[in-house]
Structure formats: C-alpha cells, structure tokens
C-alpha cells in the first residue's frame, strides 16, 4: 500500500549499479529532498527557538543562534501570575480535542453518504459544501456574535463566554474540508467490500462502523490533526468568546504577550509558550502516526 517505491526494489532490474549509487537513487534522494524542505521549514522556527532560550530574546534582535542561553523565559512563563500558562494549555485541550472528535465524526458520516449512496441532489450538495467555505469570512464575527448572543439569552451554558459555544462554532467550521477529504478517501475503498458485507447480512450502519471507519483510520487521523490544529490556532473567535484570563486558550493567552506596546522582551516568553504548544501538536501527530502510515492492511483494500 505504502510502497510507491516498490517498482524500484523489484528484482526486474539486474543489480548493476554500485551500492552507493543505488542508495542515492533509492533512499538518498529522499533524504536530500526532505532535508532541503526541513531547512526551509526550520529557518523561522530557529528564530523562535533561540528567542525562547535567550533570556533577552526579542522578535528582532534574536539572531539564528542565541547570544546567551537560559531557561528564564520558561520559568517566567510558568510563574508569572498574569500568565496562567497551564490553564491556557488545559483550556485549549479541553476545547480542541472534543471539537475535533465531534466534527470528524459528523464529517465522516456525511462523507460516507456522499461516497456510498447515489441520491438526488448529491452533486449540488457536494459543490455547495465546497463553495460555502469560500465566502470571505470577515463579517462572520459580527454574525456569530449575533447568533450566540441570542443563544446565550436562552441557554447561557452555550452562549458567549462559554466554552461550549466556542466548541459548537469549531465543530461547524471544520466540516467542509474534512468531509471532502474523507469522501475522497472513502471513494478509494472498493465497493465490492460493501457488497460482500451486504450479502453477509450487514446493515449500512454495520458496514460504516465495522468496516469503513477502521479502514479509513489514516484519513481520520489526518482530518483530526487538521481540525485540532485549526482550533488550536484560532485567535479571533476565541478572543471574542473567552474574556477571562484563566479561561483563555493558548492562542489568545499567548497573544496577550505580544500585544502592541508590551515589552519587547515578552517575545521570549511568547516564543517559549509557542514552542510548548507546538510540542503538544507534534506529540498528538506522533501518537497518530501509526494510524496514518500503517492503518491499512494491503489485503483489505485489494479485496
């Protein structure tokens, strides 16, 4: 399944080339390509890292290598009373994880319907789902304030100033892309599998939960990461919804450190916080990696 390089390894070709050349053709170019991309990826991040570990780090003076080294920024991040970092951390997790789960679940349902059933309005609905995401969202904040102001009048538990309200918005926000992403993946799972299961007496729900979902683990993990990161990085909605410092999410809380006229040296704190945040995201990603790259057994898809 994951062996796009298979043809190269096939013994069709006689072993003519030297070991080094073979390594270069087979794996070497991969390392080279990846390293090039990583250099590009890491240059701005090295800035952030060196600002985080430089006690005097600021946005503009931090050179690629820190002039001095220390953990002061981390220490201040964890101890300053106005920077309840671990609260922010917890809030972000508390909001992003359930929101990602629910939105992925709902998207997978829709993707299943779009992939497996042919019904009236299917094409227009798919197209609509794609196009609605393209509407410039600058006034969405005003509209959402109106919507949640009204909701809050009746149900304070899900109104403004509530995590639940914010989670509802995030659930709605991730639908379009994840549905399309999953539908594309579901399409590649052979229909013969469904047919065989149906003959065995399985219901559509049993097919979906028992067969499609497990087979689609890689794409579910990836959609989950995308939804999680999108939620973690949102700043505009979260700052409108959460107005108590200890209730804020990481993105909003960290932003308080780089606001206009805050001391330039706060960038070091900010960088330290950003690093910890990204470590969290990368950890989530790593824990899902095994589903992403080995989720499918070749046999299942080959049918």
């Amino acid at each position: 399944m994951t062996r796009t390089a298979e043809p190269r390894r096939a013994p069709v070709r006689p072993k003519r080339r030297s070991g080094l050349a073979r390594w270069a053709g087979d794996t070497g170019w991969r390392h080279l390509m990846v390293v090039l991309v990583l250099v590009f990826a890491l240059v701005p991040i090295v800035y952030v890292v060196s600002a985080a570990f430089n006690p005097n780090g600021t946005l503009s003076t931090t050179s690629l290598l820190p002039s001095s080294f220390g953990l002061d920024n981390f220490e201040r991040l964890f101890t300053e009373p106005n920077v309840p970092f671990w609260h922010w951390f917890g809030n972000s997790l508390m909001i992003a994880v359930p929101a990602a789960f629910v939105s992925i679940f709902i998207s997978s349902l829709a993707a299943y319907a779009f992939s497996r059933f042919r019904f009236k309005g299917r094409r227009p609905m798919l197209l609509f789902l794609l196009l609605i995401q393209m509407f410039p969202a600058f006034l969405a904040v005003v509209a959402l304030y109106l919507i949640f102001g009204t909701i809050g009048d009746f149900y304070p538990v899900a109104g403004l100033n509530s995590k639940l309200g914010l989670m509802l918005v995030y659930m709605g926000g991730a639908l379009g892309v994840s549905t399309w992403l999953m539908k594309g993946f579901f399409d590649t799972i052979p229909k013969e599998l469904d047919e065989a299961a149906t003959i065995d007496g399985a219901s559509h729900a049993q097919i979906f939960f028992g067969m499609i979902l497990p087979l689609a683990a890689p794409i579910i993990a990836i959609s989950g990461i995308l939804a999680f990161v999108g939620t973690m990085n949102d700043f505009i909605l979260a700052s409108l919804f959460l107005t108590d410092r200890s209730e804020m999410t990481l993105a909003v809380g960290l932003k308080t450190l780089v606001a206009e006229h805050s001391p330039a040296s706060y960038f070091g704190l900010f960088a330290a916080g950003t690093l910890i945040t990204s470590v969290l995201t990368v950890t989530v990603f790593m824990s899902l990696q095994r589903y992403i790259v080995s989720g499918l057994t070749g046999g299942a898809v080959k049918g």
């Binding site: 904040v141 304030y145 100033n161 700052s239 409108l240 107005t243 410092r245 804020m248 932003k255 606001a259």
Partner: peptide, 15 residues
C-alpha cells in the same frame, strides 16, 4: 472585568 485581546474596540462595537 473582562479582557479583550487586541480587538477590544471592534468587540465592543459589535456587542
């Protein structure tokens, strides 16, 4: 006291 990060004026107008 509620804190509005960066978008205080816009948030206030909207509300």
């Amino acid at each position: 006291v509620e804190e509005h990060v960066e978008t205080l004026r816009e948030d206030f107008l909207t509300a």
